[in-house]
Amino acid sequence: MRETDGPVQGNVIIFHGTGANPEVCWYPWLGRRLAERGYAVEIPHYPDLNEEPIATFLPKVLANHVFDERTVLVGHSGGAALLLAVLEHIDATVSQGVLVAGYSTQPNTRDEPVLLAGYDWAAIKAHVRDLYFINSRHDPYGCDDRQGRAMFERLGGTQIVRDDGHFGDYDQPYETFELLDRLIG
């Protein structure tokens, strides 16, 4: 999905979570809001996210998108973990990275092929000007405020802690996300 209305402010790529698609949660709502503000918005569908090993999955993602100083990256859950790998391996410095219910270590007992074995935190930090970590204290999958704090301590930025579960899931409708709309820009 690509959306834009009016002059382009930059591009935003919204990475959905594990087992999700571009039409669930707040993804289409945020895409419309940002397009109205002049961003070129991509909400790609990656059905193999967190199923295929990151070593073979990441090159496909990198080849599918353009990253530059006006790019904003948003990732939810498994998409946020993917965002870390993207930031480590791109050859540009993007404007913003927003990790919603993100994690950098295994958050539960489920296999997490989206995670790298280890992260080059300095490379990640060098490839993004402004980072936000949005996590809940009580996330049903373990993508909680402790995961956000661990990334914040390594990368800096801003950590936002809420009590909003997983910020959208099959049993948690979360059709809008005003905070994200305010943070991006």
Score class of each variant (00 low, 15 high):
residue 18 T to V: 11
residue 157 G to I: 01
residue 130 D to I: 03
residue 151 M to H: 05
residue 20 A to F: 03
residue 31 G to R: 08
residue 39 Y to W: 15
residue 125 K to G: 14
residue 75 G to P: 03
residue 85 A to I: 05
residue 43 I to R: 15
residue 74 V to E: 02
residue 35 A to L: 01
residue 108 N to W: 00
residue 79 G to A: 02
residue 138 H to S: 14
residue 118 G to T: 10
residue 130 D to W: 10
residue 69 E to F: 09
residue 151 M to I: 01
residue 13 I to S: 09
residue 78 G to L: 04
residue 59 P to F: 11
residue 122 A to R: 11
residue 51 E to M: 12
residue 67 F to K: 15
residue 84 L to T: 06
residue 79 G to T: 02
residue 96 Q to L: 06
residue 19 G to R: 10
residue 92 A to T: 00
residue 37 R to V: 02
residue 37 R to N: 03
residue 66 V to P: 10
residue 59 P to E: 08
residue 16 H to E: 04
residue 129 R to P: 04
residue 74 V to C: 13
residue 28 P to D: 05
residue 142 G to S: 01
residue 142 G to I: 00
residue 139 D to T: 09
residue 113 P to N: 02
residue 104 S to D: 06
residue 61 V to H: 06
residue 105 T to G: 12
residue 46 Y to H: 11
residue 27 Y to T: 03
residue 66 V to E: 06
residue 12 V to N: 10
residue 75 G to F: 02
residue 11 N to L: 04
residue 115 L to K: 03
residue 54 I to K: 15
residue 134 I to H: 08
residue 56 T to N: 15
residue 75 G to L: 04
residue 39 Y to C: 07
residue 82 L to S: 06
residue 113 P to G: 07
residue 24 V to T: 14
residue 93 T to V: 13
residue 89 H to S: 07
residue 17 G to M: 07
residue 43 I to M: 14
residue 145 D to L: 00
residue 15 F to D: 09
residue 140 P to W: 00
residue 29 W to D: 05
residue 42 E to Y: 08
residue 72 V to W: 09
residue 100 V to K: 08
residue 65 H to A: 12
residue 151 M to W: 14
residue 128 V to T: 08
residue 121 W to L: 04
residue 99 L to V: 01
residue 127 H to D: 01
residue 37 R to C: 08
residue 147 Q to F: 04
residue 90 I to K: 11
residue 31 G to K: 01
residue 111 D to Y: 08
residue 43 I to S: 09
residue 52 E to L: 14
residue 12 V to F: 12
residue 155 L to I: 05
residue 59 P to Q: 09
residue 112 E to M: 07
residue 117 A to V: 00
residue 67 F to S: 07
residue 113 P to I: 00
residue 107 P to M: 03
residue 91 D to N: 13
residue 25 C to R: 11
residue 34 L to K: 05
residue 17 G to Y: 08
residue 63 A to L: 05
residue 106 Q to I: 00
residue 141 Y to M: 11
residue 42 E to A: 05
residue 94 V to A: 14
residue 31 G to E: 00
residue 26 W to K: 05
residue 140 P to A: 12
residue 36 E to W: 00
residue 30 L to R: 09
residue 67 F to E: 10
residue 62 L to E: 09
residue 30 L to H: 00
residue 127 H to G: 06
residue 155 L to P: 09
residue 27 Y to Q: 11
residue 25 C to G: 10
residue 127 H to L: 07
residue 22 P to R: 14
residue 42 E to K: 04
residue 47 P to C: 09
